[in-house]
Amino acid sequence: MNPLIQGLATIILGVGGCIGYFYASNLLLDKVLYPAKGPNIASNIRRANIIRPWLFIFPALLVLTVYLAYPVVGSAYRSLFNRSGDEFIALGNYVALLESPEFRRSFLNNALWAIFVPVMSVTAGLIAAQLSDTLKWGNIAKSLIFMPMAISFVGASLIWKFVYAVDSDIGLINAVLAGLFGAGPIDVIQIPFWNNFFLMFILVWIQTGFAMVILSAALRGIPEETIEAAILDGANPFQIFFRIKMPQIFSTIVVVWTTITVASLKIFDIVYAMTGGNFGTEILPSYMMSFMFRDDGRATSVALVIMIIVLPVMISNIRQAQKELR
């Protein structure tokens, strides 16, 4: 079957199925199981209302369980077995990871990503937000800086492959080097260690718009009176920014920071498209993919390492959510 037709059929089937399920299950509850009439009307209604939330939430819960909750357990379990999955080797995969220099390299690179990308994105985003809010053409500027959000990591990688190209007729960096300093072409993708930063910058380029949009909204949410009061108190623009505005949007900065940190821990596409993990740029997700389809035991153990790194963020998010619900 042509995938396109299959796709259409799936849409109809999926949407129709959903509507059908919700409608039919509610009907069943209200008309057959606990009809809102007769002598038990009050208790019937109460009972129906106890069950109804579960009807509403069931499909989502099922999907979440199968596709996210179960895999956490499933991966943890699978990572205790060998390549083919028939032999229990306890922590063997993890021991192998620790002994592998590539894993250590990936881990350190990943740590680098998790520090550099949020620092740069948040800083650049904050600057962009602050600048754009005071300029007449600020909205256009924002739109352009936000644009990379729409571009795939692969597309972004390609865009920057042009900029980084060795040929000074393609690569902007080498063109500038040659034009201004007459320096010979360098392949920034192959400079040991520093090449990582050139890859990270691609993610910074993408995430800055995200940081900017949210921080800009937070900056606008600051009560104008506090800033006017600071002006009357004689604070200069820098003091206003660092001592009046920053503290008031601190919690938003934390949210943006953690979101970008998590994103930079999971990113796979950029390294895969730019270097394929060569030249010392391997990170955990790409390292994991090198085992995918070959050694599920090793692949899941790497995935679990990523999960463990993300865990503190997850716990603090959950705590935060619970606090807000109360």
């Binding site: 895999p71 499933g74 994991m288 995935a303």
Partner: peptide
């Protein structure tokens, strides 16, 4: 939750 975790299972 990293998607990577879900891939194999």
């Amino acid at each position: 939750v990293p998607i990577q975790l879900a891939l194999v299972p």
